[in-house]
Nucleic acid binder design. Structure first.
Lengths: 232, 232
DNA sequence: CCTCATATTAACCAACCAGTACAGAACGCC
DNA sequence: GGCGTTCTGTACTGGTTGGTTAATATGAGG
């Protein structure tokens, strides 16, 4: 029974199986993510997080200090896990219209696939973004998205397909709004209007229409016609 | 000192100044709205609500039973106060394009003007809309918005300005998304990208562009050109 | 095998907070 | 002015919960 050696933890790593501080940290963080994203900062219970962990409550305080700081780390983690993505879409290889379409659909689907992240952002907004300002790490993280969009935009304008006077930041805002709302407000929207937009192929259609909406907004009037064929 | 008569409460009403149950109810509800919309359901403190009231904590329980039911009443109140609006926009008197534009801009501005409502909806979504399903009252409340939109849509299609194959519900979803996100995610968006879209004339421009985006989505390709003149 | 920093556990505590007991005031009605 | 009902203030409580204390286990370096 006294298996007190450097046991393999299944991953093939030569890390110690027992005494695995980094593992404990990640374990706590992931449990905390579940709990906080589900119940919010004030609603999340430290004891509940501890229960989800394979260690004890004391460890949470040992590694993270207090509830607030744990929450902040979870928030950073959430942003961190979701970042990137846009970078390796290979948008530069596509023509502007296809690139923008792909970006829209990716964003929509990506949000949809990461409800925990969405919920963390919702919660953070409830708290007026107080903890986000606190953390330097996150701010620089979302710039790439804007830059990628900016590039596509410029290319489209250069080729005469996209209108002048568009701002990448604003367009990002619009794409985000449509993609974010889809996840964040699903519960109330469904409760009021039914789940028609969420069940069956509703989401697939929404995804396509969001991209189409952005496209129609961006294209010059005489290029809009061409999209109709692509859309349906 | 024994001023135990039906004193005038300053408003000139002939209601009893003392013993005003309905007044107390409303007082509690409005205090609770502030507290809940600010701090959420689990974050909101009954004692804090009581402190904001001119009565005591006991009254909250006397009139509303418990925290959860108080929250539900606040939620209903929030939806109730915001409803209507669309009804008396006089959209029928306008031509379709103008009507849709007005509806978009109204929705955007209306959301913007009612952050407490937005926050209540955010909070309710965090709770998976559990309390909303609970309450029968609210569900029927937002139908008029859809119907108004549907009417405009049909008229626009009849006149050949709007494309076929559009759904009022989906369009409502899109308008809501753009208007809601603007308020709900302001904090995190500002923290990451700065307040360019929110300060100065940023909001006015966003409002116009949201309407424009919806219009461009809805119009047939050969009617899009006309909008450019209106937009700028 | 001794030592020290790191990591971990179980039991504990004090504050907070939703909800209540109870006593009593104000009102409507006769 | 008695009487039942509706309403209100004070003081309290019991459970929850964030956070801690003190003691101990573990591994690395000497």
């Amino acid at each position: 029974m006294a298996t007190r050696k450097v046991a393999d933890n299944g991953g093939g790593e030569h890390r110690p199986a027992k005494r695995d501080p980094e593992g404990v940290r990640r374990d706590i963080l992931s449990a905390a993510m579940e709990e906080f994203s589900l119940n919010g900062l004030s609603g999340g219970r430290i004891d509940e997080i501890a229960a989800r962990t394979r260690t004890s409550k004391r460890m949470i305080y040992y590694y993270f200090g207090d509830k607030e700081r744990l929450y902040e780390r979870v928030l950073e983690e959430a942003y961190g896990k979701v970042r990137g993505g846009e970078s390796d879409l290979g948008l530069d290889a596509l023509e502007p219209v296809a690139a923008l379409t792909k970006l829209c659909r990716f964003t929509f689907d990506h949000h949809r696939a990461n409800p925990a992240f969405i919920r963390m952002v919702m919660i953070e907004n409830i708290h007026h973004g107080r903890h986000l300002q606190h953390s330097e790490t996150i701010r620089g993280l979302n710039r790439p998205a804007i830059e990628a969009l900016e590039t596509v935009l410029l290319r489209g304008q250069a080729e005469g397909q996209f209108r002048k006077g568009l701002e990448a930041l604003e367009l990002h805002w619009q794409i985000s709004a449509l993609s974010f709302f889809n996840v964040s407000n699903r519960a109330t929207f469904t409760a009021i209007f039914g789940d028609g937009l969420f069940a069956g192929d509703g989401q697939e259609q929404l995804s396509r229409h969001v991209a189409e909406m952005v496209l129609r907004y961006v294209l010059t009037p005489d290029h809009v016609g061409a999209i109709a064929a692509t859309g349906e």
